[in-house]
Amino acid sequence: MRTSYTISAIGHAAVLLWSVWSLAARPLTISASDSLPVDIVTATEFSQITKGMKSAPQTEAPKPLVEKVAEAKPVEDTSAKLVEKKEVKAARETPPSPEVKPVEEKPKEPKQAEAKVDPIAEALTKEDPKHQPKKAEAKPQPPTPPKKPAPPAPKFDPKQVEALLDKRNASRLAAAGETLNSNPGLGLPNGQATQLSQSELDALRARLRELWNPPLAPSDPEELVVVVEVKFRPDGTVEGQPRVLSSGRTPMAAAARDSAVRALLRGQPFTMLRREHYDLWKDIEIKFDPREMIRG
């Protein structure tokens, strides 16, 4: 009994030690990168959120537009004309039934050889040294075009691109939901179908990094940190003067402020910010912090 206790105790201790050691030996390394906002939504929630119309009047309690009671489906373009869904009909009423042609009747090999003109095979036979002299004997003119040219490929005529365009009017499917609601709404307040992507922010940061020329003092870097609130116009230019939120009375702070504002003014228009996300980037608070540069 005692022996088993001892063995058990030693065993547990060993496992514990091993786990502690192995955890300590491999510390979790976290690469420094920006966090990506992640939110888990169900498909139903997503479609609920995205159902909205920008030009709609604001209501107290916004409800999604519902024109048809059905299972929820996302709406791509709410401004398009509403049409009833038509049944898709194939061009031929009755497709040829495969049973008509019995499999046994098909003389496969000869038919294939005759019907399909394989340009590669033909070229190969032409180039075949065995066949060439024969052909030369039979017909004295060497540049004879092949008797049976390959079926002409559909030609692309750039002048008739228009013919390829879909001339039907834009249409959309009815917005479906559990209960009917004929009033178009602005969408739900917690809707987030359009999020400013991380790459847009990174591109903005990279541009500012190119433009920003901070004053670098050998010491006292605290006062060099500048927070600027900047309002953008939809075309990416800065509206008015960027507002400096950090306060500092020293000449160093003034120089730091100017350098941050100058970077913003020099960089406009910031075309990497996409217009469809304007609501999100129309007002950005940017913190310019050169201390990392000074510490090197």
Binding site: V38, L216, D289
Partner: peptide, 27 residues
């Protein structure tokens, strides 16, 4: 953790978007 962090920008996004720039040029 990512979820916890992720919820923050959503709340902030309603107010104002924030961006940190920690590197500039020394030209």
């Amino acid at each position: 953790a990512a979820g916890a962090i992720g919820t923050l920008p959503v709340e902030r996004a309603l107010a104002v978007l924030k961006l940190d720039v920690t590197q500039g040029n020394v030209q």
